[in-house]
Each structure stands twice: as structure tokens, then as C-alpha cells.
């Protein structure tokens, strides 16, 4: 383990995350036993008593998950000077590649972490919308779905915490086979991501397709908010377009935006963290926009019951509003950044 201030802080946060996640999952199992044995008065009381605690724990857990996300990148940035051939976070993510020891798990753990963190946020956002819809009713018809959502949050956060702890505690020492006639030591840490992700597509084509789709999505969002559209088909379509825009946005960031903002030929968005930190706000806003829209769309499928039909369109309009302005904020910040540089 490389000990520095960020490593200690990350270990503390992931310890808290694991403890709260285990507590939440334990309470959930306790409630599950009560409600699976039938809705007796005692059982209902146990579930009700646990529900408030679990929801508070879930909110704390989501806060911890949110805090641990930027902390991961600050930790990786702090590891950069630890290896002679590493120039930025991209190099740190490659430490352990092709190694024989425990460090061979490091790149996989980082990939898993970079999948789990947005996943927890997506589940958390959708859960929050369902929670708000449920709170506006008098009979709490979405309680069961909310409880299942709590289990999902607990388990995903626990996996995320365990992966973080694993990444922190595994020694960052690379053990390679000695070079001989049949083996070759490959240094993966000195190379940089100089190749674009989409080899056959030019930057202009990618930019045009991405911008057109993004503009289309913004227009659909505005239309959904103003006309309060909340049908499942409409929201399903919105969710599908959001996913496509999110994927294209990632490709655009690596292939076009980061080389343009950093003014160098590499396709490494990690450099933005240290060199243009305000552009990271734009990227975070883009991700937040995608999460809000996805959460609003998921609510159409999970929170649509007769009791919520009156309030759901208004609630979704507000969630989509947050998504729309997150996207617009991202566009405003990044386009000004592009022009200023």
C-alpha cells in the first residue's frame, strides 16, 4: 500500500461505506424476514421501524459514494510520482498489467470501480425519485419497491467499498517474468493513450453526430418538461437516447475534447484533472444530466401506480429539468473553455 493523505482518507471513507452498507443490508434482511412471514401487526411494525433507519442509512451511503468518486481520482493523481515512467492517471491505471503477483488485479479493480461508482449513483438517483413519489402518497404504495431498491444500493455500495479497499491494500509492486528468448518484458507504464478510441471515424464526424444527437435530446427534454410527457414509451425512448448520447459523449471526450482542450495529440482525459480542473465540472455536469434523465425515465417504470399517477408527471418534469440544466451547464462551460483556450 502506498501511504499518503489521500490513501488514508480513501481507506477511511471506504471503511465507513462498507460499515454502513453492511448495516443497511442487515436491517434489510431483518425486515425481509418480517414481511415474508406475512403482514402481521408485529411484522408491519418491524418493517416500519426499520424503514426510516434504512432510508437514512441509504442517504448517508449515497453521500459517501458520491464523496468517494472524486476521491478516487485524487488518489490516483497522488500516485503519479510513485513510478518513474508514469506521467498521469492513465499510467497509474496501467500499473499491474501483465504482472504475476497480486498487483495483476489492480487494473481490473480500477475498471470495476469506474463501473460501480456511476452505477450506484444511477440506482441512487432512481431510488430517490421513487422515494419522492412514494412520500407524496398517503398509503405508501411503493414501499416494497423502495425496500428492494435499498438492498440494491447496499449491495452495490458494499462491492464498491470492497473493491476500493482491495485496490488500496494490494501492494503496487509489479512482478514480471524475467526476459528470455520466449518472454518479453513489456513496459506498459511509459506509453500514453495516443490513439483515439474510434480509429475509423474522424473527429469532425464524431463531433457532428454527437452534437446533433445531444441537441435532439435537449429538445426532447424541453418538450417533456413543458408538456409533462411521462408515458412509458416516451420515457423509454428518452432513456435509450440518453444512453446513446452518454456513450458518444465518452468517445467525444477521449477522441476530440481532451486533445483540443489540452492542445496536444494525446487522447487522455485524465490530464484534465490536474491541468484544467474547471473542465472536470463540465464533465461531471454531463454525467449528472445523464443520471437525472435516466432516473426520471426509470421512475416511469418503477413508480407508476394508480396512487402516483397524479403527481408523477410533475415530479418527472422537475427531475428532467435538473437533467436539462445539467446538460446545458456542461455545454456552456465546455464550449466557453474551448473558445477561451
Amino acid at each position: 500500500m502506498i501511504v499518503n493523505a489521500y490513501a488514508i482518507l480513501s481507506l477511511f471513507v471506504c471503511g465507513l461505506q462498507c460499515a454502513v452498507a453492511v448495516w443497511l443490508t442487515g436491517r434489510w434482511l431483518n425486515s425481509r424476514r418480517a414481511w415474508s412471514s406475512g403482514w402481521t401487526d408485529d411484522g408491519a411494525e418491524v418493517v416500519e421501524r426499520n424503514a426510516y433507519l434504512m432510508m437514512t442509512l441509504a442517504l448517508v451511503l449515497l453521500g459517501l459514494d458520491l464523496a468517494s468518486w472524486p476521491l478516487l481520482y485524487l488518489l490516483l493523481q497522488s500516485y503519479v510520482p510513485s513510478w518513474p515512467g508514469v506521467m498521469c492517471i492513465d499510467g497509474v491505471t496501467r500499473i499491474g498489467t501483465g504482472s504475476l503477483g497480486a498487483s495483476r488485479f489492480l487494473p481490473g479493480l480500477l475498471v470495476t470501480l469506474q463501473v460501480f461508482k456511476p452505477l450506484v449513483m444511477l440506482i441512487g438517483g432512481a431510488w430517490l425519485v421513487i422515494y419522492l413519489a412514494n412520500r407524496a402518497t398517503s398509503k405508501a404504495p411503493l414501499m416494497r419497491r423502495l425496500l428492494w431498491g435499498l438492498l440494491l444500493i447496499g449491495v452495490t455500495s458494499l462491492c464498491d467499498g470492497v473493491c476500493t479497499a482491495g485496490y488500496l491494500l494490494i501492494p503496487k509492486q509489479e512482478d514480471h517474468l524475467a526476459a528470455g528468448c520466449c518472454t518479453q518484458v513489456t513496459s506498459t507504464t511509459t506509453t500514453r493513450s495516443s490513439e483515439p478510441l474510434l480509429a475509423g471515424v474522424s473527429g469532425t464526424e464524431l463531433t457532428v453526430v454527437f452534437m446533433l444527437l445531444w441537441a435532439g435530446l435537449l429538445f426532447l427534454l424541453l418538450d417533456s418538461i413543458r408538456k409533462q410527457r411521462s408515458g412509458r414509451k416516451w420515457m423509454g425512448g428518452l432513456l435509450a437516447i440518453t444512453l446513446v448520447v452518454a456513450v458518444l459523449g465518452g468517445l467525444f471526450l477521449v477522441d476530440v475534447l481532451s486533445p483540443a482542450l489540452l492542445q496536444r495529440p494525446h487522447h487522455c482525459p485524465y490530464d484534465l484533472v490536474s491541468e484544467l480542473p474547471e473542465s472536470v465540472i463540465g464533465i461531471v455536469l454531463f454525467m449528472a444530466g445523464s443520471f437525472w434523465v435516466a432516473a426520471g425515465a426509470i421512475a416511469s417504470f418503477c413508480a407508476d401506480v394508480p396512487e402516483t399517477r397524479e403527481i408523477l408527471p410533475g415530479l418527472q418534469a422537475r427531475v428532467l429539468f435538473l437533467g436539462l440544466f445539467s446538460y446545458l451547464g456542461s455545454f456552456s462551460l465546455l464550449s466557453v473553455q474551448w473558445c477561451v483556450l
Binding site: I225, Q228, L276, P277, E278, S279, I281, G282, L285, P313, G314, A317, R318, F321, F325, L328, G329, S332, L333, V336, Q337, V340, L341
Partner: peptide
């Protein structure tokens, strides 16, 4: 829905965000 005040606040936030890169530079 959302209320008009949300739209006004949203626009104000957009202006602030647009100024961030200039300030950063």
C-alpha cells in the same frame, strides 16, 4: 411545472458556469 423561479435560477447558474473557464484561465 417546474416553477418560473427554477428557470430563472437555472439561467443564472448557466451564466456562472460559462464564466468559470475565463476565471480559471
Amino acid at each position: 411545472n417546474p416553477p418560473a423561479s427554477w428557470w430563472r435560477s437555472g439561467l443564472a447558474v448557466l451564466v456562472v458556469l460559462g464564466m468559470l473557464p475565463v476565471i480559471g484561465n
